[in-house]
Design a protein around this nucleic acid. Structure first.
Ligand code: SF4
Ligand code: SF4
Lengths: 159, 159
DNA sequence: ATAATAAAAGACATAATTATCCTTTATTAT
DNA sequence: ATAATAAAGGATAATTATGTCTTTTATTAT
């Protein structure tokens, strides 16, 4: 027997690769990028509405993305968030690093001892390869690459 | 610029693929498997000591693993946890499913809309492939496969 | 039968993540 | 200059995950 569908008892968590905060960050960044196509700025209210996130929470996250230089912002009337050409070259890896840190790229998924070439577990090589793939994928995914795809589908960024 | 090492502001979490609870579950299961080689049973104290986990917490987790049928247990003197031949064929995927549910295998890592063949994001195919690899890896990793490797390295299961 | 052992069970406590609110600062238009 | 706008910042609240404690139940040895 293998892979039978047990009920998940203890942990009701997301347990996915990135935190919820980081998911919001990615969705928000992609939305801002989309809006920035024609130099338009977008505000917290509009962002929150379009990516299905709590308004105050995404505001907080955007502060951090701003500090990390991943989004630009302007205060006052006609202000809002935007991304310039330089920012379009940032990648999903940059966002993930800024919000979640580097655990996804460097940590051991099983939580055993730190990766060791001397005493690897049976999964070590496979795991290392997968981590590298994830890293490559995220590093290769530029914000700008998403603009066109996103423009196609309405509400794409909503849950 | 890409993949510069920003400070992680918001999220200090593990942000790895599986929850800490699930990590403990895996480590405990592998330890029990190791001990079960010669029909020996092992108790909560011994397990906790060897996998570097809180005693009461791993006790709780082992209850769940027991309910899921992934470990066997016996009360009273000479009691403890053990895994029989049938259990040795269980996989890491089984443990992950029992503790974390199926999010790792089925959920979208980016938290955008549910995977759709009509409106996929630029990462969709790559992501799908990686998820499948992770699933295959975990489904292929039988508990029994770890026994020998573990027997080699002392304290392998400790952090 | 009784005492000792060890897991099962359930209630409880702490820490981390996620989410909200309110005040301040900067910018723009009038 | 003033009012309006919108992000920045800081404090706080709610929720979830992680961790602890105490009692109960089952088993074994005496
Ligand atoms: S040897 Fe296995 S468990 Fe240890 S760090 Fe590498 S992949 Fe993780
Ligand atoms: S299309 Fe992209 S974002 Fe949407 S579910 Fe698939 S991988 Fe995730």
């Amino acid at each position: 027997m293998s892979f039978i569908m047990y009920k998940a008892y203890l942990c009701k968590t997301n347990a996915t690769m990135i935190s919820k905060t980081c998911e919001y960050a990615i969705r928000a960044t992609l939305f801002i990028a989309q809006k920035s196509l024609d130099d338009a700025r977008t505000g917290i209210k509009e962002i929150a509405r379009n990516i299905d996130s709590p308004e105050a929470f995404i505001a907080k996250i955007l502060q951090e993305l701003g500090k990390a230089g991943l989004v630009l912002s302007a205060k006052g009337p006609n202000g809002g968030f935007y991304i310039d050409d330089r920012g379009m070259n940032n990648t999903l890896a940059d966002i993930i690093l800024a919000i979640d840190g580097d655990k996804l790229f460097t940590g051991c998924g099983l939580g055993l001892k730190t990766c060791s070439d001397k005493k690897p577990c049976p999964l070590h090589d496979e795991f290392t390869a997968i981590r590298q793939q994830i890293k490559n994928m995220m590093q290769g995914a530029k914000i700008g690459d998403f603009r066109n795809s996103l423009a196609l589908g309405e509400k794409f960024l909503r849950r």
